[in-house]
Design a protein around this nucleic acid. Structure first.
Lengths: 357, 357
DNA sequence: GCTCTTATTGGAAGCGCTTCCAACCGTTCC
DNA sequence: GGAACGGTTGGAAGCGCTTCCAATAAGAGC
């Protein structure tokens, strides 16, 4: 081979691995090994290559790397969007932020997809999305995380899958990350009981969101263990919206005897209930305590601020990303378990002991 | 050539373009043309290929397509994240949702990045992100959209760049999408004037967010045109947070004569101000009107709901995506102008005529 | 000193796709 | 009737990278 042509290296184009190889006077394969922390590279070679990379400002072409068989570093984050309703923006943004944080550390890329939940071919559409992207992993958010058929399809497609807040932690299938919703429901109910409440209303969420159902069941268990009368508890089914709260609160406080506290499936509903309470001239918490789940920012912004169960949303998605990132080339993702992150009850002013009647 | 080998097409692997070519008995180049809606393909060939694609369930490998020179369909959405503060989740989520909607229609992929704003090498880090991804375009959100050096660097790197809410619409550089902040500020101030307010307080945002400054200037223009006294207006500088509102409201209402209305740079600040008003025993809107900008969901959830200027966030990012998607292979993005989307004042209960003293 | 291992190294074969270009075909025009 | 022509078609050359594999260098053991 004639003298190594150091000239004519790059002409406006980005440097390639061959440019690096030429500059450092080594083979292309060696450069590749250095770039991938491969084994069997002498220190001398390594530093020579690294130096060339530095001077050339070389950056690998990820598409080429993947084409050639390297592992893709893309992870899909899939949200459900109802056709018209505003998405639950905080929940979505927080999940994303948590995942993004881990991405920045690990060099992964997060691609977000919002899939309209209606229509018959939803599962197929998602499957297509995943296959086309050739991604390394998928993070599925509720309620998709509970669609066991979808979970099965994706798993069969060989995707590293992590589910956010799966409804049942024993459900076989893919691993999941969530919090112990049943225990959270129990704890919040217990908190109200400890303050002296004996008549409680509950505004539930959508039945298909299993994790929300588990919160409800946990609360019911607390009431039952306390020996409360069956009809000491009144519940109505909402759909997680502000409107659920404004619409259903009147129904709950119309019952006799009137509840002294209301638990809502999520903060938005609670804020709606609070709004309705103001509207109807009730003083919170003197006349009525209101508590909820999630601890989204709005819960601290309203007056009075809401007592709510803090759900570690960012941590959940961060953990999900870690699981995928750690799954390595093919090492099976952690066993099909569901990691439960700790929750805490954030006590604010919307809850107090019931006024003596 | 011997009989076309229809057998042995795929063995567990995904079908490739060659499989399609073989099955349909045409050349690989023709398949490629069909897939890309290329010119000069007879209907007969086209339908034959399409049929083969169908039976094989073929999907292009995007990485390979890009490697071979096809246009990438990835767009980067870059957010700024302060080290620890909670991101403005609604703003972020709404921008993303808008962009995602267009992505779904156009087959683009949105990759979100959250870049920590502190540190000296921020611009370099962003540039790296962009170069490494080989993306088709970049959407820059505030305050990055006003970093003219960054804009210049990215433009020089040959990226299709669209800025969200750039501070100045005349600023040369890349195209932008926003709303007429100056006019919005003017309109909101005018609204208060029309109701009879003559003493107004203003809680500003961070000075580096130029679009917020323009709102302030617009409001000041309205006051000036009305002939209000210089010191009829009191302003304090906040940082867009709830805390800004709670902290600064007392200062504003401590002035003599006391303002009858407060304008806040954004909803969070207004919610804080409202919180402080409750705390300090003021009745909103009887004792004090509060208005703000953005119309994020929280503005409708608090009591009383806030009068605020609706900013079409989703539409802004949707438009940004369209500009990038429409920029085609290389056709220069629309001239370096800034598209201004219409805003509207959403009248709610937090604003009323000042009480007669 | 010489053969046998073992750690390094570079050549070359693709990964799946786009695109240039030469070949081809049915027309149109002189 | 033959030359020129524009619409079609398929072969082949990469895009930049990983990885298999043969080749070489360097120790190790007798």
């Amino acid at each position: 081979m004639a003298g190594q042509t150091l000239e004519g290296t790059s002409t406006g184009k980005r440097p390639t691995i061959d440019d690096v190889a030429r500059l450092s006077g080594v083979g292309r394969a060696t450069v590749s090994r250095v770039l991938n922390d491969g084994p069997n590279v002498s220190d001398k070679m390594r530093s020579r290559v690294l130096e060339a990379v530095e001077t050339l400002g070389y950056q690998v072409n990820l598409q080429a790397r993947f084409l050639a068989g390297g592992a893709n570093r893309t992870v899909l984050l899939i949200f459900s969007s109802d056709t018209e309703s505003e998405p639950n923006s905080y929940y979505q943004a927080a999940l994303e932020t948590g995942a993004l944080r881990v991405c920045a550390q690990t060099g992964f890329e997060l691609v977000t997809h919002s899939v309209v939940q209606s229509g018959a071919d939803v599962e197929t559409r998602i499957l297509h999305l995943v296959e086309e992207s050739r991604c390394r992993g998928v993070i599925l958010t509720p309620p998709f995380s509970d669609w066991s058929n979808l979970v099965r399809l994706l798993t069969e497609a060989g995707t590293a899958l992590v589910r956010i807040s799966p409804g049942s932690s024993e459900d076989p299938g893919a691993p999941g990350v969530g919090m112990d919703d049943e225990a959270a429901g129990f704890a919040l109910a217990r908190h109200l009981l400890d303050l002296g409440h004996r008549r409680v209303g509950f505004i539930q969420g959508l039945a298909e969101h299993l994790s929300a159902e588990r919160r409800f069941l946990g609360a019911m268990r607390a009431f039952k263990e306390e020996g409360l009368d069956e009809n000491a508890i009144v519940s109505r089914r909402g759909n997680f919206t502000f409107k659920s709260g404004t619409d259903l609160l009147p129904e709950l406080i119309a019952t006799d005897p009137r509840p002294t506290a209301i638990i809502c499936a999520n903060d938005d509903t609670a804020v709606g209930a609070l709004f309705a309470a103001h509207r109807d001239g009730l003083d919170v918490p003197r006349d009525l305590s209101i508590a909820s789940f999630d601890d989204t920012p709005v819960s601290a912004l309203v007056w009075p601020p809401l007592t709510t169960v803090h759900q570690p949303i960012q941590e959940m998605s961060a953990r999900a990303m870690q699981i995928i990132a750690g799954a390595g080339g093919s090492g099976g993702v952690a066993p099909q378990s569901c990691e439960l992150l700790p929750f805490t009850i954030v006590e604010r002013a919307s809850v107090a002991s019931p006024a003596r009647r």
